[in-house]
């Protein structure tokens, strides 16, 4: 079974975790001014990356904390895990061809912290 490294508890089996979708999807700054289409984009539309994607995960059977992880959607390999308060590690190369928004987020982060352990 695949081991996922929880930033708090360390490496644990995959069954202890649950998937929480794409990470770093910002809440609209002025939600009252959004029309239905914009709301639909915020609520339902996500990147369909082939390659590394920043995702939210929850360690449900352990510390029950949410954290973020960089995972390759093809190989399932986790390249980095980091706590929610920490910036996305910019050192991890984004290999996906369609990861335009993820790349854009990376370019805004200045910190090059390694994985939170």
């Amino acid at each position: 079974m695949q081991l996922i490294e929880c930033p708090w508890c360390g490496p644990r089996e995959e069954v202890e975790f649950s998937y929480g979708g794409q990470a770093h999807v910002p809440y609209p700054e002025s939600p009252a001014e959004l029309d239905d289409e914009q709301w639909a984009h915020y609520v339902f539309f996500r990147d369909n990356t082939r390659g590394t994607l920043a995702e939210r995960w929850n360690h449900g059977a352990g510390c029950r904390r949410w954290f973020n992880a960089m995972r390759d959607t093809v190989s399932y390999r986790f390249s980095a895990v980091y706590r929610t308060a920490e910036p996305m590690p910019a050192s991890v190369p984004l290999t996906g061809a369609g990861s335009s928004s993820a790349s854009a987020t990376t370019s805004t982060t200045t910190s090059t912290t390694t994985t939170g352990r």
């Binding site: 508890c9 202890e16 352990g62």
Partner: peptide
């Protein structure tokens, strides 16, 4: 200590 699964029970 560890919070984990033992025999599939938390």
């Amino acid at each position: 200590s560890a919070q984990t699964l033992l025999g599939q029970a938390g």
